[in-house]
Amino acid sequence: MKHIQLRWADLDPNFHLRHSSYYDLAAQERIDILDAYGITLQLMKTENVGPVLFKEQCEFRREIHLGTKIHIVTSLLKMKRDGSRWIIQHEFLSEEGKLHALIQVEGSWMDTVKRKLARPVPVAIFEGLEKFPKTPDFEYL
C-alpha cells in the first residue's frame, strides 16, 4: 500500500482528481513495485524487455479532492503460469478503506529489439512477478 500525495496539477476544472491522473499514478506505482521485486529499469534494459499494455480500464466510484488522503493498493489479479501475460489491479482507497477507483491493466512483455512479445519471459522477470503482491482471488490464466 502506498500513500499518494496529490498535486494541484492533478485536478480538473471541477476541483477533483482528473481522470488521466489516476492512470499516471497507477503507472508509477506499477513501476515502483516492479523495481521493489527486482524488475528494475536496468534489468529490463539488459534483458531487452519492457512491459506493454493491451487494456487499461478504470471504474470511478467516488471523487478524490485535493487534501484527501488516498492509498493505492496494487496487486496481481491474474497471470499466465509462465509470466507472459498478466492483469494488475490498483485500488484507490481512502483512509477509511472506501474504494474511490479501481484500475485494471492487462499486459505482457515486449522484446524491445525485435518489437514482438517476449517469449519466453526472462527468468529474472518471472521471479519478480512471482513475488509481486497478489489479490485474495488471484488465479493463473
Rank of each mutant, 00 (worst) to 15 (best):
V52N: 00
E130G: 07
Y23E: 06
N14D: 12
I87P: 03
F54L: 14
Y22G: 05
H100F: 06
I39Q: 07
K98H: 14
E56M: 11
F132Y: 08
I103N: 11
K80A: 15
D24W: 01
E29K: 11
V121Y: 05
E29R: 14
R61L: 05
H100E: 02
D137V: 13
R62E: 04
E139C: 11
P122L: 09
E59I: 07
L99Y: 07
L117P: 13
L11F: 09
V49A: 11
F138R: 02
H100A: 13
F60W: 06
E59L: 09
H100W: 03
P136K: 05
G38N: 03
I33N: 06
R30V: 09
D32H: 14
Y23C: 02
D12C: 12
D10K: 05
T46I: 06
I72R: 04
K134G: 07
V73D: 08
V52W: 04
P133V: 07
V73G: 00
R115N: 08
D82N: 15
W109G: 02
L6A: 10
L34C: 13
G97S: 11
I64G: 06
W8C: 09
H90C: 07
L117G: 09
D137T: 13
G97P: 13
C58Q: 07
Q42V: 04
S84G: 15
Q42N: 10
D35N: 13
L76P: 08
M110F: 03
L53A: 12
L17P: 09
P133S: 08
T68Y: 10
P51T: 05
F60P: 01
L34D: 03
F132K: 03
P133R: 01
V52H: 02
K80P: 00
S20Y: 12
E130K: 11
T135V: 09
S108M: 01
